[in-house]
Nucleic acid binder design. Structure first.
Length: 104
DNA sequence: TGATTGACAGCGT
DNA sequence: CACGCTGCCAATC
């Protein structure tokens, strides 16, 4: 816990994302303390230990596009989950202008 | 310790 | 608007 890796920080941040809201990998990376580490964030997501404590489906690309997801039918399930939580969608992409969340 | 990978982001064409 | 290339960072082999 003391020497939390970038991944541990990411998990904590993602876990704070409320339902109906999403964040971009880049934003999570910045909050984790390392702006530009968006790729590293994605790597942690795929290695995510439990989707219950790490709602990785609430993390999308900078353009609102859904990428990856290691559960269910992949991005399909991811989209369904987001829609089910109230995230605004614009076709196959999330409407970041309405659903992007930022730490208070 | 060094090299490779990966669910990205930004810019150019 | 769609596609491609480069750059960044951390984790893993």
């Amino acid at each position: 816990m003391l020497q939390q890796t970038f991944t541990e920080k990411v998990y904590r941040i993602v876990a704070r994302i409320p339902e109906g809201k999403v964040m971009t990998y880049g934003q999570v990376a910045v909050l984790a303390g390392s702006a530009g580490a968006a790729r590293a964030v994605g790597m942690c997501m795929k290695n995510n230990p439990d989707t219950t404590i790490v709602p990785c489906h609430r993390v999308v690309a900078s353009n609102g596009d859904l990428t990856g997801y290691s559960g269910g039918q992949g991005v399909k399930t991811k989209k369904e989950k987001l829609l089910s939580e109230g995230v605004i969608f614009d076709g196959e992409r999330v409407d970041l202008d309405e659903s992007q969340w930022t730490i208070e």
